[in-house]
Write a protein that binds this DNA or RNA. Structure first.
Length: 415
DNA sequence: TCTGGGGTCCTAGGACCC
DNA sequence: TCTGGGGTCCTAGGACCC
């Protein structure tokens, strides 16, 4: 079998870079926010905003992705904060994807700012091509990317994480020992906080130590995950670069953290309804139906619990799904103050097989027509053009959530 | 440090069937 | 009646990713 050549392209501080480029393009500023301490922060007006992306100067103040905006400001009072703009990110991501598509038909969007591509057809000149891609993205789109190169997706991804930023790195099989094995074990893809803690106990500190560790012991402790990380540490991974539109979405969900204590059933149900509205409209936009609905709650101790219910028939009806979620909520809520509420639908299928006979029921037909009409109005006049009267003066957003990023499927845990 | 929001996959236990 | 073993489905929770 011929060896493959895989690229992993990763945008350097994507959200911040894209915001910087747009501001310069619009002439809003002559200052490049990549050169000053700056962050993209979520919902800084509410209490729960966190840092989504940071500039390199901000990094010098030890500001970290994921930490509360409030804390970041303490570390650097002159920090400039910008709101996230997911529409812009999708546009930027699309522009990069289109450019990259010129180089290979086997191209997989892994997340909003990461792409895998199989470029095995560039036999000898792949390094040159990587340089060309990097230059073109910088000149035509205005931002920097890292490119990792190897024979499989895992190694390409590990390589694109290497420093410095804005660079091209290879990580072929014969380079694993030198370039990957000395790294701390938590740098390995799929080694998170919990796995790291267990590896500590085994005195496994580097990727190399994991690679050489006894397999039976790992399998005993980590079950199937043991095999995954042992293989990854040895650079073994052979999944295909999947054309992204072939991957189906497994579930659709939205959740929200509430700025106040939710202690009444009525209030909680209103929030659930607002989340249901956005989940169901996403369901209908993708021509999908669902069979399982679940509600998840987080209390103030940050304990999360979920409850799911199976519906007798596949549906995309806001009314039916909301009714099931209401029941699910009543069944689990213990009456304690709630900090976060989430709604999710799974067991999806395409609606094309369900048109006609199954919807002979006149009442269902009517509901379907109503949902469709509302979707159309919202698309035409904005999502708040039609809102339920229950939300008037409630202080709760009529439609909560949505996901501009999910116009394409997201990543899975297996590359 | 006091923690957003979107996902996927895996596991274990219970229900139910043959 | 109180006993097998295998298979599948459902549900809750946990771990990981961006």
């Amino acid at each position: 079998m011929n060896e493959r050549v895989i690229f992993h392209i990763d945008v350097n501080s994507a959200y911040l870079s894209w915001t910087a480029v747009r501001m310069l393009q619009l002439g809003e500023t002559t200052e490049d926010i990549r050169d000053i301490p700056s962050i993209i922060g979520g919902n800084s007006d509410e209490r729960h905003g966190i840092v989504l992306a940071k500039s390199i100067p901000a990094k010098k103040y030890k500001i970290q992705t994921g930490e509360p905006v409030v804390d970041a400001l303490k570390k650097c009072p002159e920090l400039k904060i910008f709101k996230p703009n997911y529409k812009l990110y999708m546009e930027s991501s699309n522009a990069m994807f289109n450019l990259l598509s010129e180089y290979s038909p086997k191209i997989q969007r892994y997340s909003v700012d990461e792409v895998f591509m199989d470029v095995s057809h560039y036999k000898e000149n792949y390094i040159e091509k990587a340089g060309e891609i990097q230059d073109r993205i910088r000149k035509e789109l205005g931002f920097n990317v890292n490119i990792g190169i190897s024979t499989n997706k895992l190694l390409a991804k590990m390589a694109s994480d290497f420093n410095p930023k804005n660079s091209i790195h290879t990580l072929f099989q014969d380079e694993i020992m030198d370039k990957m094995w000395p790294l701390p074990v938590e740098d390995l893809f799929m080694v998170g906080k919990v796995t790291k803690r267990k590896l500590d106990k085994l005195n496994i500190n580097t990727i190399g130590e994991l690679a050489l560790f006894d397999f039976d012991i790992l399998e005993n402790i980590f079950k199937s995950h043991g095999k995954v990380i042992k293989n990854y540490a040895n650079g073994i991974e052979n999944s295909e670069v999947k054309k992204y539109n072939y991957i189906e979405v497994k579930g659709i969900g939205n959740s929200t953290t509430i700025a106040w204590d939710v202690i009444s059933k009525e209030e909680a149900l209103k929030i659930i309804l607002s989340l249901t509205e956005s989940v169901c409209s996403r369901l209908r936009v993708t021509n999908s139906l669902c069979k399982v609905v679940s509600v998840s709650l987080k209390d103030y101790g940050f304990n999360r619990y979920t409850h799911q219910r199976t519906i007798s028939n596949y549906t995309d009806s806001t009314e039916i799904i909301y009714k099931e979620l209401t029941n699910a909520f009543i069944e689990i809520w213990k009456g304690e103050p709630i900090k976060q509420i989430g709604v999710r639908v799974t067991k999806l299928c395409s609606n094309e097989f369900f048109q006609g006979s199954l919807f002979d029921d006149k009442r269902l037909d009517k509901q379907k027509a109503l949902d469709k009409t509302i979707d159309n109005l919202r698309e035409k006049y904005g999502k708040n053009s039609v809102i339920r009267s229950t939300f008037l003066h409630s202080g709760i957003k009529a439609i909560n959530g949505g996901n501009e990023e999910s116009d394409y499927p997201m990543m899975g845990s297996i590359l």
